[in-house]
Design a protein around this nucleic acid. Structure first.
Lengths: 216, 216
DNA sequence: AGCAAAAAGCCAACCTGATTGTTTGTTATC
DNA sequence: GATAACAAACAATCAGGTTGGCTTTTTGCT
């Protein structure tokens, strides 16, 4: 149940020969282009043509690497989750114990991870999967798998929770819900100060949950 | 700033003549069909053909009532918001003071309002508007307007908050974020008990916020 | 009141543009 | 020579919107 287990295969290995290196490079360009497309135009308007164009290759070349759109989307799913998670955990590890435990700085880092291109694309797939049955069948099993990995990895990064696993689970559910909900309403709620106040409130609630003052 | 002000025009008046009544009836059938389509297939796959088919009329007839898809969507937006809000407020008014204030029953009613067909359709437009620039221009101004109305109407339904408007604003933001975030992750989090526990936690946090024990 | 013109509700066929996946061909690498 | 990377053209499908026509209701004029 470790993050490293699901590092996208075929993208990291420094290939020996020219063709492998070229292939990896092109695949990465396609994935990054797909992320941009998803973020900017949404899943529905993310056409294979647009991705290829943004990646700077022909559609034919793209369909050589990813035979179908579904196959590409599955790769984007893995890639965005892994990249975001890796960056998030790396950022958490840079925190001092004081910042992490007493000042609850992980919350803001989590919030920032929701504002990345990677999560933008992931989110787009997440909402599209609610109504697109094909995507749903690809997305749900993966999302549930990722969720378990995320929980385990984050638990390791926040050892101060380890003596109360129930509270930790609740805090995770709570943090994810509240933050993602805020993300969705961000554009409707124009008042930035109010959004900041909400994040501070969420943070306070989590601290109180950890201290046992806010038992469910 | 009252809900009644934005009751969709042309749908409620009991028209005198036959044509007006027929027209209203058809428009309602179209709106309800659009809600079903949005909920089931998502915005991207909600085609005019599908809506017409589900409403039991021809595409030509539909485009007679709503000349363009954008026009129809704008009507769906108004209609779903109004209908959900009206039902929500009506349900709140059936609560006794004890249920509402001391047992915080409004939270569960709000949650149930998020599970309705109307909110399902509204949500679909909300997420699609994040990346569809045409829809965005229709959605954002309306959503911001509705948000103000919602706040004012809900404030009237929960008079126990009226002596602390700042806490009320925060509680609203918090409740909306956390509940909608939960809604999004509902399918990923398979454990129903954990979801119930999260709602209880959110409820507790709001009660503590009202009592002043959880100042931001 | 009677009747013709106008308008409303409705339908079917057509047109244009876009998207996906397939097929065929070309060049460079193994 | 076989295979991989890539490109371009093709076919099938499907979207939204327009046009013309048909039936019923409403309106206005005598």
């Amino acid at each position: 149940m470790a993050l490293a287990q699901l590092e996208p295969e075929g993208l990291d290995a420094e290939g020996q020969n020219w063709q492998q290196r070229k292939s990896i490079q092109t695949r990465l360009a396609i994935l990054e282009a797909a992320i941009d497309c998803l973020q900017e135009h949404g899943f529905a308007r993310t056409t294979t043509q647009l991705i290829a164009q943004m990646a700077g290759i022909s559609r034919g070349a793209m369909l050589h690497h990813y035979a179908t759109k579904q196959e590409l989307i599955a790769s984007v799913l893995e890639y965005t989750f892994f990249k975001r998670m890796e960056n998030f955990l790396a950022a958490i590890r840079t925190l001092s114990e004081d910042e992490r435990v007493d000042r609850n700085a992980g919350i803001e880092i989590y919030w920032e991870s929701l504002l990345t291109r990677e999560f933008g694309a992931y989110l787009e797939l997440m909402v599209a999967a609610r109504t697109d049955s094909e995507l749903r069948e690809v997305f749900l099993p993966k999302a549930r798998h990722y969720e378990r990995i995320e929980r385990a990895e984050v638990a390791r990064a926040f050892p101060e929770w380890q003596d109360d696993p129930d509270a930790y689970d609740l805090a995770m559910d709570f943090c994810i819900s509240a933050m993602q909900g805020l993300l969705f309403n961000r554009e409707i709620w124009e008042d930035r100060d109010r959004r900041i106040r909400l994040r501070r409130f969420i943070s306070t609630a989590i601290v109180m949950l950890r201290s046992g003052a806010l038992a469910a």
